[in-house]
Design a protein around this nucleic acid. Structure first.
Lengths: 133, 133
DNA sequence: ATGGGAATTTACGTTGACGTAACTCATACG
DNA sequence: CGTATGAGTTACGTCAACGTAAATTCCCAT
């Protein structure tokens, strides 16, 4: 088996998070490291989940929302209603994300416009400065 | 002149925010309503800024970052260094946003995959249920 | 004059996502 | 054997972005 586990330190280095963060995620039931006596051992599953958590965060999911989405994976004998609910959450988020992307595109364009502006300002100010020297 | 101003209530209704929010933005120097005696009067400029603030928020800018970007507009006699700094902030944010969009695209795809999964689960569970009836 | 609605100020409360400090416990090392 | 290093627990602190409550104040209609 590829049951290679990682210590908390290795995880921190590998994913650039603090120990506090990993323990916090465990407390919030986003990660489930095995407890070898005192220490935590993070499995491949934990690493996969952490990657998803970090990406989720990067575009505004709350940890709670991320937890719900992660639960899409382990749907063994769940009740159908629960499944449906989670599925709908995912659908909503997807719609949100697509709206967000559209806005993002728009905003990027506008920001670019804005910056052409800034460039001109800079140029004219440099000209003024050179003229003054 | 089109110097039509709006009261706080009108603003709230028009932009779906609370009075608290508008006062908060004023305190943070994002808005500058005129004070007619006791009351605030929001100008066209305030409305334009508010729109930008709200959009900025929708994709994760902090109010402080938004304030900096808004300052790109009123660059009258500013110092060049200040201008440059702000300009660089904008550049960085733009890069961030483009990275974010790329990730968003990726994540949307993955989420869609995930959901096909969910659909199959739902379908098979419905089949099971029907067979049991 | 008065009572009812707005708007205002002041100030404390809240939520999420950790940071940070204090202390304990275990182990490795010279 | 002492100690330094690293992990763990507990619990209080923080920061942003407002919410919420209390106590005025102002204007206007009855």
């Amino acid at each position: 088996m590829t049951e290679k586990t990682m210590t908390i330190r290795e995880m921190c280095d590998a994913y650039d998070v603090t120990p506090r963060t990993l323990r916090f995620y465990e407390a919030k039931e986003l990660l489930f490291p095995i407890r070898e006596g005192q220490k935590r051992l993070f499995t491949k599953r934990d690493r996969a989940r952490l990657k998803l958590i970090l990406r989720g965060k990067r575009f505004g999911f709350s940890l709670e929302e991320i937890r719900q989405l992660l639960d899409l994976y382990h749907l063994g004998d769940q009740q159908q209603t629960q499944l449906k609910k989670t599925y709908e959450i995912a659908q909503d988020r997807l719609a949100d994300m697509e709206r967000q992307r559209a806005e993002l595109d728009e905003a990027i364009d506008e920001l670019k416009e804005q910056m052409k502006w800034g460039e001109k300002m800079l140029a004219s100010m440099n000209a003024t400065k050179r003229a003054a020297e």
